[in-house]
Amino acid sequence: MRKIVLSLVVIASVLTACKSEKKEKVEVKEAVKVEAKSVSLNNVDVTASVLNWKGTKPGGAHDGTVSLKSGGLLLENGKLTKGEFVIDMNTITNLDMKGSNGAGKIEGHLKNADFFDVAVYPTSKFIITKVEEVAGKLAVTGNLQIKDVTKSIVIPATISTEAGVTTFTSESFNVDRADFNIKYKSKSFFKELKDKFIDDIMEMSFVVKTKA
């Protein structure tokens, strides 16, 4: 009997630990008003810059990249003050199944109306509205636009310059796709999915480099 009780205690502890590992999403707020052309400087090297993504579901995960269409980073006295990244949604690429038919199916599904509806919304944007230093890192506030929804979020990042190239690198941040009205197999919209859902949390990170 004692062994059974101990086993139940262990199982309960494991389940509690698993629940505590739930991914924290970035807080979304109303978009910050910015000038129509907050950054006119198109100095980002789009061939060396990327948005990384990862999505999960029960028993699996997929990851990949999206290229930038254009972008600019503005530094004043060596400090980042403004920036704008235009993301080319037509370049959504799946990496974990690269080279297989599965990758093409995933890319096509992400581009269609179930998810990002690329035919209607060919670009997304991240416009930096405020930059603060916190504990040696940057807390970067920006307007994230996905489809027809724009929200203000804060992401942690670092910036460095070497040989005339400035690199903006964000840490991974978690975006809730439900905040951007992406409904496909989302428990936020469909409660009866049981284990047939896709997680609302999308993990993202930027690596953006300027031209030399």
Rank of each mutant, 00 (worst) to 15 (best):
T93Y: 03
N94M: 07
L138T: 02
N90T: 10
S100H: 08
G108Q: 13
Y121L: 03
K147P: 00
I146F: 05
L144V: 08
G102C: 09
S100A: 13
D88K: 00
K151L: 08
T141C: 06
E132D: 14
N112C: 01
D148H: 08
F126A: 01
I146W: 01
P122V: 08
A139D: 09
M89H: 03
V140N: 10
V118A: 05
S100T: 15
E133S: 14
V131P: 00
K98M: 12
S124M: 04
I92Y: 00
T91M: 04
F115N: 03
F116K: 04
E133D: 08
L144Y: 03
A119K: 13
I146G: 09
F126W: 04
D117W: 08
T129R: 07
K151P: 09
L138F: 13
L110I: 04
D117E: 15
K111N: 10
V120S: 12
N94F: 03
V134P: 00
A139N: 03
D114F: 12
F126T: 00
K105A: 15
V134W: 00
I146H: 03
V118H: 03
K151G: 05
G104H: 06
G102P: 01
V140T: 12
I146Q: 03
S100Q: 10
I92D: 09
V131L: 13
D114V: 11
V118S: 07
S124T: 09
L138W: 07
A119R: 01
I128N: 04
